[in-house]
Design a protein around this nucleic acid. Structure first.
Lengths: 337, 337
DNA sequence: CTGAAAGCGCTAACAT
DNA sequence: ATGTTAGCGCTTTCAG
């Protein structure tokens, strides 16, 4: 016995079962061509010794790590305060639980730019990646392309690029749906609290709002940007009201921002929806608990995550890069509009 | 050139720099005793080739994985809906960002009991573990002990065991603080919505509530259990009111449950705090947004997480297992009590 | 169906 | 200061 550490190796298992390492390995990996009796012996040895494969050794030879990275180029603050990310992570976790893959969560720390994430990707330390909240100036898309790491974006990456695939909702259509509802209910002066200009969700939702207003010959000049946080939404709404006191409705590009915006509206002495109607987007649980409950557009994060994982798995199994997928969206009418 | 894959190895770097693999390795690992000129050459080769160490190969020889597991034996649903876990993960992420360690998130999936988590721990696939929400019938504590995996519990594990360390708040004291406040403000008939009996936080908070009431000669019989969710808190409160319609106050063992409990109280036609005073625990952001804002006891998850990571790092660096740490707590008075 | 042997990429003695 | 060498534990040809 040359076991210095307490951790049994495949060699130990093989010896205990009276077979070669190769056969033991076959049993561990479910290879069919092992005699039943032999298999039993090995299995018994494994149980007895409490053997568990050394993943590093395995991955050194298989050239797979059996992990996938979930990359979120946002601060830990954002990620863990925004239910949108929670939903995304929940979806990914759930989908991954059915596989042998382990999830490695990579969150952008404000400290070092995106250098850490980039290095991790370029190092090919995982078999694939799901990249969640992509900004225009992230070069993550370039990195995954250069090292050809199987990747699916959750939310359309700002820079489209052949070979990059993603799953998203049609954010232009979603915003149009929300804005159209406001128009149809007779609102004439409709502003928007938009998302960041460097994210496709920010840009597209603004576009959808703009399209509908111009189609109807209504002014599309009341725009302020928020950063997808409650506070950011509140600040943006305050600025919006200062510049356009005649607003009678607003489309806010996320429920979290809408929550802040509603506080700002109330603080200005206006009533919701009587003075100002509010429509959000995401349909977080939060939307049912605002005062009044928030009319919003569904952002099916769970389904999107599941879809993204499925597309990634297909690639990992050697399939082609699948076409981008767009998920359907719907309006949920509550009391804020 | 024998490079079949596109991924450069240390060997490639060494060759390009005209040195041996050993020297290249020294540069990569920041070994001092390398001539500046040599170092420069190696660094240049690394940049040129876009070299990144193969972690599997490294960990095979160093016997370290440079990862730590964050184990949460709860369903993904719970984990990603409960801001308590979000706070914990935020704290751990933040603390880990300052190190070279990568976090592996292990979440209990309802499917396979805790077998998956257990196997992962016993396989020693990480250098250490932080175990977050521990239940009485989890045998995780036994597993980490048996394979002597450096571990810190976040929240006192139900089974105390020499060699197990943890960081927690004094939940008995916290509950006593909340209940004492209710007593001091003249309430006479104080119930509680307690947490699960199989978790130390559930048991201890119930104990603290019980202690104060008996000390003051008040009845301590109005108890219903919830599962630390909004819905669970609501249901428990409904049962509590049915059995004890004379209640004039309630200590609810978590803010999430308190939120549900407040809905149930209102639904019963009672006013908060006039008819029933409510005190929660955790001091989530949510507590500021309930109607009325919730009086609660601070659960300093961020600091606890930081502390837990620090204690784990100390162990990983070869230090002794540190004594359990108890964090201080305080009452935040808002309008619900 | 099973075993022998090669080697994945790296670090860490041990030489020099 | 640098090179040589011996594995780390595993999978995978290749023989038999």
């Amino acid at each position: 016995m040359s076991r210095r550490t307490g951790v049994p190796t495949l060699e130990d298992v093989a010896r205990a079962a009276g077979v070669s390492r190769a056969t033991a390995s076959r049993v561990v990996n479910g290879d069919e061509r092992v005699q039943d009796a032999t298999r039993e012996a090995v299995l018994a040895a494994i149980r007895e010794l409490g053997y568990s494969p050394n993943l590093a050794a395995r991955s050194l030879v298989t050239r797979r790590t059996d992990t996938i990275a979930v990359v979120v180029p946002e601060s830990d603050e954002r990620v863990f305060n925004d239910p949108f990310f929670a939903g995304t992570l929940r979806g990914v976790t759930k989908a991954l639980a059915l596989t042998e893959l382990q999830m490695v969560l990579l969150i952008g720390s404000p400290g070092d730019g995106d250098g850490r994430l980039d290095r991790y990707i370029r190092g090919r330390h995982t078999d694939g990646a799901i990249i969640v909240s992509h900004h225009a100036n992230d070069n993550l898309w370039r990195s995954v392309a250069e090292v050809s790491l199987p990747t699916v974006f959750l939310g359309r990456p700002f820079a489209e690029h052949p070979g990059l695939t993603f799953v998203d909702v049609d954010n232009v259509a979603a915003a149009a749906l929300a804005t159209g509802y406001l128009v149809d209910s007779g609102r004439k002066r409709i502003g928007t609290v938009a998302g960041p200009a460097d994210m496709s969700a920010g840009a597209d939702r603004l576009q959808g709002w703009h399209n509908v207003l111009t189609e109807h010959g209504l002014p599309a000049d009341a725009v302020e940007r928020g950063d997808f946080t409650v506070a950011g939404g509140g600040d943006a709404m305050t600025r919006l009201l200062a510049r356009h006191p005649d607003l009678d409705a607003v489309f806010v590009a996320s429920d979290l921002m809408a929550s802040g915006a509603m506080d700002a509206i109330r603080a200005s002495g206006r009533a919701i929806p009587t003075d100002i109607a509010v429509v959000g987007m995401d349909n977080l649980e939060l939307a049912t608990r605002t005062q009044p409950p928030l009319t919003t557009v569904v952002n099916p994060v769970d389904e999107m995550a599941t879809q993204a994982v499925a597309m990634l798995l297909a690639q990992l199994e050697g399939g082609p890069i699948l076409e981008p997928v767009t998920m359907p969206t719907e309006l949920v009418v509550r009391e804020s509009a």
